[in-house]
Design a protein around this nucleic acid. Structure first.
Lengths: 343, 343
DNA sequence: TTGTACGCGTTATCAA
DNA sequence: TTGATAACGCGTACAA
């Protein structure tokens, strides 16, 4: 049914290569006369010829398509804006450079010896890979270029890695809160993230930032609550929670805001809350959530650009790109209620 | 570099077809003994063989990938949540059925005689096509199945079409506003959308809803403002704007909220505003925007499912699916300031 | 300019 | 039953 290059060639009385040359500019040393070229073009148009990209890609080994692998996504809108920013960054870079972007469900796995490869993608962006020997080996043996977003683990990976500066981001949060008079800090994380390197980094950043300001951090104030904040009430009742609460992620932070309100705790009057990952989601919480912002879109754009550089053989980058965070101050933080009592 | 099916065949001392049969179950009347099968499997594993999907797709004419075409998108996050919901709907349906989803930049055009087709997609979802003879012809002549989202124009298209019920949606808005005491209604639309069928439908819906309630609609109150609300001040000053303003889209509505505030007009006390397309964006405006919601995600999911049904040869659907709207009441609407004055 | 082979998995046909 | 061989899908590299 579809018209092939051979159909056009036959109709024009020339070879397939002549058509390929005229229509697609292929064939280094193929010459076609102007008259033939015109005839070919006209006939191709008349026959409504479209090149089959599959056949071309099979031959050239280039698809001009990159994949995004993100194990956590089923829904983009879900409850945070993280993936949106990520996707915006990737497609803006990819489109500019003539690449399409595929989101596919099966790429979440990788073969025992490397990243899965099936010919459909020139490269892939792997978001938040888990820290395991398998991951490291998969990256090392990948047959296609890979760029990684948010691999907090420290191994030297043979790929470009974009991460944000969790320590510096936490310092911003602490600076903001101490300026508001807070001295007793809590840190909350949910089970799914409690043992990630990112959580470790953020907790470490919190401790360091406090230490640098001469403030002690009480280990009792690490709260392993559920993703929906389960456990908040008990800790609040027992007085374990400080006046400032830093939460690992924006999703959990939002849930904690709700839970606190339902329990009669007024935010920010009684408790200041800072989340991590400031996206549009933080605009939708009550009160709106003060949060540390990672430049996710920039990170994603760089990831895509480095990946495509590699695909096009321009540069090979295996470095770790560290992005500074910023702080979006919203309505969930205010002066420490105890500050006025302090001498 | 990549290992092919022939490499495995040679290493196992069998034919490529034997490998294809064992590894992929192809070849109707090919039989392979258990011992050979085991050897093939083991060798393939050892050689880290991966099938090339391009070659397979070229042969089978199936890619298990669908495309999304959306002329307006460069940024998903942009200023509204529309595309997010759309994408969530599509990927949830597609993934469930083993399809990948590609967002590509070049599909915004179509050939003179049909939807562009390059072999990479089994079908495509076309969002908000413009109403033109070319569009209709392209759909009629498409070589791959197409499903359309939001083709407000009334032609009988040879594809499944998902639309929302603009008339009923507008009725919800009017019901809400009249219950609040409003009697003088304005309608705003920006130049980019002023001449679309959707704008026509919504304006018609507004007029009808008012008429049914015995309220007159003054044609002077159709406001062709800029996308950023340019023109609002002049019309406000001249008293042309009613007490209730219905806006074609959420983006323009958000801009109008800002502009009104800057001009000293208090929303909703002095003016109630209702937008169309209620997404998370409406949660981020000041005040939060009351808006008519289209079930975009449901529409997208159905579009994907109907498309895949068609691809798989299950059913052929050419009907127009009309989805009812709902109204999300937020903070941009309140009692009519004139209502108390009325006898 | 043209012919031939190639990229790689699969279909269809044929042989033991 | 067990399998091999040839041809195909379609655009392109390279030699002639």
């Amino acid at each position: 049914m579809p018209v092939t290059i051979r159909d056009v060639a036959q109709a024009a009385g020339v070879s397939p290569m002549a058509v390929s040359k005229v229509l697609h500019g292929r064939g280094r040393n193929v010459r076609v006369s102007d008259e033939s070229a015109e005839r070919i073009r006209s006939i191709a148009e008349k026959m409504n010829y479209r090149a089959n990209d599959l056949a071309r890609s099979l031959r050239t080994q280039r698809t001009n398509t990159i994949a995004i692998v993100f194990e956590e996504f089923e829904r983009l809108g879900g409850n945070t804006g993280y993936f949106i920013e990520l996707f915006d960054g990737v497609i803006s870079a990819a489109f500019e450079r003539g690449f399409s972007v595929t989101v596919c469900p099966k790429m979440v796995n990788f073969s025992r010896n490397g990243v899965i490869w099936d010919g459909r993608f020139d490269g892939l962006i792997w978001c938040k890979p888990e820290d395991s020997p398998t991951t490291v080996e998969a990256l090392a043996n990948s047959v296609i270029p890979v760029a990684v977003l948010h691999a907090a683990f420290p191994e030297d990976l043979p790929v470009p890695v974009m991460v944000c500066d969790n320590t510096q981001g936490m310092d911003l949060a602490v600076e903001h809160l101490t300026a508001l008079g807070h001295r007793r800090f809590s840190f909350a994380v949910d089970p799914a993230n409690a043992h990630t390197d990112e959580a470790r980094d953020r907790l470490f950043g919190l401790k360091t930032a406090l230490q640098q300001r001469g403030i002690e951090f009480d280990l009792m104030r690490i709260h392993n609550w559920g993703h929906k904040g389960e456990g908040f009430e008990a800790d609040w009742e027992s007085g374990k929670i400080g006046t400032a609460l830093v939460v690992y992620g924006e999703g959990q932070a939002g849930e904690i805001l709700n839970r606190a309100r339902q329990y009669g705790v007024t935010i920010p009057d009684q408790l200041s809350v800072v989340g991590f990952d400031s996206t549009r989601f933080c605009e939708t919480t009550t009160p709106r959530l003060t949060a540390v912002r990672q430049p996710v879109e920039d990170m994603a754009r760089l990831a895509a650009n480095l990946l495509i550089d590699r695909i096009e053989g321009k540069t090979v980058d295996h470095s770790r790109h560290i992005f500074p965070c910023t702080l979006d101050v919203r309505m969930s933080t205010s002066s420490c209620p105890e500050a006025s009592l302090r001498p």
